[in-house]
Amino acid sequence: MPKSKRYKLLQDINSVSFAALELTLFLDTHPDDRAMWEQRKTYLKERECLIAEYEDRYGPLTQNSPGDFPWNWIDEPWPWEMTPGGDD
């Protein structure tokens, strides 16, 4: 089954978020490593772009996203209902 655009976009957000998190943990114990600090900033910028694209297409990703009116934070699917396939 081909993956939906939505699913692929979430995978990309997951990848870059995980990379950033891994560097967050690394920096917790290596606070003076400038190269990793820069690398993390690059990941975070990329993450921001991907999230903006996702929210534009599919609605809010976090509680603090503005979302649409009427309130679309309540829209399904929730994360535990997400499947790889689909039309969007």
């Binding site: 509680q63 934070w73 309540i74 829209d75 929730w78 535990w80």
Partner: peptide, 19 residues
């Protein structure tokens, strides 16, 4: 509880209050 709730808004409410 939120995983098996039947509507988007009940899943939202339990997620938001739980958080």
């Amino acid at each position: 509880q939120r995983y098996t709730m039947p509507t988007g808004y009940t899943k939202a409410l339990l997620t938001d209050i739980g958080t």
